[in-house]
Design a protein around this nucleic acid. Structure first.
Lengths: 121, 121
DNA sequence: TCTTTATTTAACCATAAGGTTATTTAACTG
DNA sequence: CAGTTAAATAACCTTATGGTTAAATAAAGA
């Protein structure tokens, strides 16, 4: 596995079970047993998933009696979002260029229609 | 590996070599040999990385003589961005609550300063 | 203190990931 | 056609991942 924080985060997010756990945690802090319920999986498996999420800095854990409640880390998605930001620009530009191209195309077609005085479809 | 598109994309992004390839492709379409240059890695390794990126729908490939130029797929990051969107809301709310809390705290401190008439630091 | 509840750790297994070298395929070039 | 360039495939190796069962740990409760 890669050791840089961004790789670790993407790797953690690459598993549907872990994303489902995050989705549950988005509703609020909860226990491991509670988190495990929706899954057809043993507790140690869930425990490992939580360790991966924690290791990636996506969740934090506390203690409440025997329970180890989990919650989403405050700035969990900050760097992932920051990374995406660069590419967001890229595809917005791409979209802008496409948009410009389509407008040019439409202008050309309008011009054509004017010169040919509505001959074809 | 998981087979759903989002997992496949996150997994593809979880490797720094692949992210570097994407960063290079953000500058424009280019050949495999060109893409390979910055890395201390054999061609087959790069070839595999490109296959992963293509399989995730992050890049597309064409043909130009013996070359197989790669470019970033038009809507490469759309679903990843969409997924993040939900959590963006979450942490904006979290931030809003923190902000509200801090404002309340400051208000309380101003009040305190007024009643104690600047006694301590 | 013994038991129960909540969770983790250890040991193991199958499969996937990321790399290698050697070989092939594909297309241009002389 | 023979040779060169660009890239992919095959076969292999090592390590990581995602799961299991069985055992250990931690805290609360009778």
């Amino acid at each position: 596995m890669q050791t840089d924080p961004l790789s670790t985060k993407f790797a953690a997010l690459a598993d549907p079970t872990r994303r489902a756990i995050l989705a549950r945690l988005a509703l609020g802090e909860t226990s491991v047993t509670e988190l495990a319920k929706p899954f057809d999986m043993t507790m140690p498996a869930i425990s490992k998933h939580l360790k991966v999420l924690e290791g990636a800095g996506l969740i934090t854990r506390s203690r409440d009696a025997q329970m180890r409640p989990c919650k989403i880390a405050p700035s969990a998605f900050k760097d992932v979002d920051g990374w995406l930001e660069d590419y967001r620009k890229l595809w917005e530009e791409r979209f802008d260029r496409l948009d410009a191209y389509l407008q040019k195309l439409q202008a050309k077609q309008r011009k054509k229609r004017r010169t040919t005085k509505r001959k074809g479809a």
